[in-house]
């Protein structure tokens, strides 16, 4: 406990040291503020856009896109992952295309999405979904395949239905790998949302970044970078919190092994 407290103190200390170094570099080095403003002015800018409400509008939109895109991508990925895990023929058939689609940089497709779906919300959501889909699908498939063969045989002997297999065996067995997929996916979703906003739409933190860039407003640009990071970290931590709640049994891993002579 004492050690953890000490770690936290060091972490906070390092944070302030970095801010201080940034401040000293800017003031002593006479760095022009359109190149790199100091931490003070950036903070002032964040407070300003928070007060006039534009921060919340942009961050809110980005957050909304991430949540919607992540939800759709996860649902789709889990569904397709389930089907492919149970239908080997189909998986073998689709294997090369899946590999191709998975490794292709989907960011490169955003101009195409704009042509197909316009400059509005749809293009952005489609891009996020396409980035979320693959890690979720692959990990769902691996998770479902990780069910021990004997457990499946046990369910066969019990003449269990598809749903009983799913809820009793498959979901709990696949859960750790599935959640690992979601963790990859939420990061992908954040990146995709920002990049989509660079190109499509006139609202969102990605748009704010581009706006700050094109108007040579380095203060706004850095404020938007900070806000982007906060949204990304918030999404990731929210996911971790959900995972931790659901993964109670794994948290008990450290429970002492019982010494017994009865064995």
């Amino acid at each position: 406990m004492k050690r953890r407290l000490w770690d936290t103190v060091i972490q906070i200390g390092v944070f302030f040291a970095v801010i201080l170094a940034w401040h000293l570099y800017v003031t002593w080095g006479n760095v022009p503020s359109f190149v790199l403003p100091g931490p003070g002015p950036v903070l002032a800018k964040i407070v300003e856009i928070a007060k006039n409400g534009s921060l919340w509008r942009h961050a809110g939109m980005t957050f909304y896109e991430i949540v919607v895109g992540f939800a759709f991508g996860t649902a789709l990925g889990a569904l397709v992952g389930y089907v492919l895990a149970h239908w080997r023929t189909l998986e073998n058939l689709l294997q090369p295309y899946i590999l191709f689609a998975q490794t292709a940089p989907k960011i490169a497709l955003i101009p195409l999405f704009v042509i197909w779906f316009g400059l509005g919300m749809t293009s952005k959501i489609v891009l996020i979904v396409s980035n979320v889909f693959f890690p979720v699908m692959i990990n769902t498939m691996l998770g479902l395949r990780s069910v021990p063969a004997e457990l499946n045989e046990l369910m066969t002997l019990l003449k269990a239905s598809r749903w009983q297999r799913l809820f009793h065996i498959e979901i709990p067995s696949a859960f750790p790998l599935f959640m690992a997929g979601l963790r990859l996916a939420i990061i992908q979703a954040t990146i995709a949302a920002i990049v989509a906003e660079w190109i499509a739409g006139d609202v969102g933190l990605g748009f704010l970044l581009v706006y700050g860039n094109t108007t040579y407003d380095a203060h706004l640009l850095l404020a938007a970078v900070v806000a982007t990071n906060v949204v990304g970290i918030a999404c990731y931590l929210a996911l971790l919190a959900i995972e931790r709640r659901l993964l109670r049994w794994q948290a008990q891993e450290t429970a002492a092994h019982l010494e017994n002579t009865a064995a």
Binding site: E150, E153, L154, L157, L158, K159, H168, I169, P172, Q250
Partner: peptide
């Protein structure tokens, strides 16, 4: 036989860890 009429014990215990 109907479900549950055949019990099977494997070499490994194959319990549900959770």
């Amino acid at each position: 036989l109907p479900g549950g009429d055949i019990g099977f014990v494997f070499q490994d215990s194959v319990l549900l860890p959770w």
